[in-house]
Simulated assay, not measured.
Amino acid sequence: MTNSRPGRATLSTIAEAAGVSIATVSKVVNGREDVSPGTRAMVEELLRLHYYTGRGGGGVRQPTVEVVFAGPLAAYSNEVLEGVLQAAAEPGVAVMLSKGRIGSTPTAWALAVAKAGRSAVISVSNEMTDQDANALARANVPLVVIDPLTPAGADVVSVGSTNYAGGISAAEHLLSLGHTRVAYLGGAPDAGCNQARWQGFRGRLEAAGYPVEPELMRHDTFRYAAGLAGGEYLLALDRPPTAVFAGSDEIAVGLIEACRRQGLRVPEDLSVVGFDDTQLAEFCSPPLTVVRQPLREMGRVALRTALQLASGASVDSHHVELATSLVVRASTAPPRTWPGT
Score class of each variant (00 low, 15 high):
T10A: 08
T13V: 04
A23M: 15
V25H: 04
K27N: 14
N30K: 14
G31C: 10
E33F: 06
V35E: 08
P37E: 15
T39N: 15
R40G: 10
V65F: 02
A70D: 13
G71S: 00
L73D: 08
E79A: 15
Q86C: 09
G92D: 09
L97N: 07
W109H: 14
V113N: 02
V113L: 03
R118T: 08
V121P: 11
V121G: 13
V124F: 07
D132R: 00
D132W: 00
A135T: 08
A139D: 05
P142H: 05
L143N: 06
A154W: 10
V156F: 02
V157S: 00
N163T: 07
I168C: 01
S169H: 13
E172W: 00
L174P: 01
L175Q: 08
G178M: 03
V182G: 08
P189R: 15
N194D: 12
Q199R: 09
A208L: 12
P211N: 08
V212F: 09
V212T: 13
M217K: 10
R218A: 09
Y224T: 06
E232W: 02
L234P: 03
D238Q: 12
P241T: 09
F245E: 10
D249A: 11
A252M: 09
V253E: 00
G254T: 04
G254W: 01
A258C: 07
R265V: 13
D276Q: 11
D277W: 00
C284P: 01
P287R: 13
L288K: 02
V290M: 07
V290S: 14
Q293F: 03
R296M: 12
R296Y: 03
E297F: 00
V315K: 08
H318P: 10
L322N: 03
L322W: 05
A323Y: 04
A333F: 09
R336W: 06
R336D: 06
